[in-house]
Simulated scan of single mutants.
Amino acid sequence: MKLEQLLSPDCTVCAVPGTSKKGVLQQISRIAANAFKNATEKELLNALVAREKLSSTGIGKGIAIPHGRLLDHQQIIAVLITTEKPVSFDAIDDQPVDIFFALFVPEDHCQQHLQTLAAIAAFLGDKGNAKRIRKCQSSEQLFKMATGQQD
């Protein structure tokens, strides 16, 4: 699945305030719940926290891909945020994180979940993309960059 099929402007937010891992996960859950009325903030947060308990989704170089599975949902929800300041996130390289691409997938879409995570990891793993994301000054600019609509 292509990123432009996943992201929406209302789920792409630049310079989100956050000082803790839990705070960032709450922000992500709030953004997703506001955009997708069929999922509650609490349900979304619980899915992210459950996954983080297994191991951190901080993949290194200031990037995290928090993700969770949702019961009784058929829609994939994606949220891309940057934070005002990097946040300690227990990443594999012990570096703080400032780019978060969160994904919520239906419980029964395992194969699609893995393919989507791989696409997100490949996109964020490109040093040029991460650098361009960090240079974004607005949510609109971040959305356009992530979906390949930049001038």
Rank of each mutant, 00 (worst) to 15 (best):
K2T: 15
K2G: 14
L7F: 10
D10L: 05
T12V: 11
T12L: 10
V16R: 05
K21F: 04
L25K: 00
L25W: 00
I28R: 01
S29L: 04
I31P: 02
N34W: 06
A35D: 00
N38S: 08
L44G: 02
L44S: 05
L44K: 01
L44D: 02
L45G: 02
A47G: 08
A47I: 05
L54G: 03
S56V: 03
T57V: 08
T57P: 01
T57F: 00
G62A: 06
G68Y: 01
Q75I: 11
A78E: 03
L80C: 05
T82S: 03
T82I: 03
F89K: 05
D90M: 11
D90L: 10
D94I: 13
Q95T: 10
F104V: 08
F104Y: 11
P106K: 02
E107V: 09
D108R: 15
D108Q: 15
Q115T: 14
L117T: 07
A119Q: 14
A119D: 14
F123N: 07
F123I: 09
L124C: 07
G125V: 09
G125L: 10
D126T: 15
K127F: 11
I133L: 13
C136D: 04
S139I: 14
F143K: 07
K144A: 13
M145I: 13
T147C: 12
T147E: 10
D151V: 14
